[in-house]
């Protein structure tokens, strides 16, 4: 049996697993609303911000994400497909050596991870990365 990568991935990705932290999907607020609330609706630029996320995560319960936006005051992270899209806000203080951080997050299925950086001049930068989540249906 031979499937192309795309077909195979397409048939094998689903969202909620029994162990998932978010089995019931009731969306409190959408990511768009949360982002609008954060930026006050201001336009965002996609230059000057980097978001590193795996293209395919082996398990949605622990996905390592890295974000960097040189000069930012704050970076806020969203998982657009989670019941509560807010993930974390990083405020960088005077002792920070870079405006970058790595953390591990939960993703309830394939979705966009979004990072918005708030710059000292009041502008906002935005990066989006789509992450597919495999569901290991096997092996307990």
């Amino acid at each position: 049996m031979s499937l192309t990568r795309r077909e195979f991935v397409g048939t094998s990705l689903t969202s909620a697993a029994a162990f998932a932290a978010f089995p019931s999907m009731s969306f409190a607020a959408t990511a768009d609303e949360a982002i609008a609330a954060y930026t006050g609706g201001a336009a965002t630029s996609d230059a000057g911000i980097t978001l590193i996320a795996p293209e395919i995560a082996e398990n949605g319960n622990t996905v390592q994400i890295e974000v960097s936006a040189p000069g930012a005051e704050e970076i806020i992270m969203f998982a657009a497909g989670n019941p509560n899209p807010n993930v974390a806000t990083f405020k960088f203080g005077p002792m920070s050596g870079s405006q970058a951080a790595t953390t591990r997050i939960r993703l309830a299925g394939e979705q966009d991870v979004i990072a918005i950086a708030k710059m000292p001049d009041g502008s906002f930068l935005k990066a989006v990365s789509n992450v597919k989540v495999t569901i290991g249906g096997c092996g307990g």
């Binding site: 195979f8 094998s12 082996e58 569901i135 290991g136 096997c138 092996g139």
Partner: peptide
């Protein structure tokens, strides 16, 4: 691959395992 899982030989040299799942 079985569904999306990359099958190993099911060895137990890594136990106990911390599973992301």
């Amino acid at each position: 691959y079985i569904r999306a899982d990359h099958l190993s030989q099911g060895q137990i040299n890594g136990f106990p395992t911390y599973r992301l799942k």
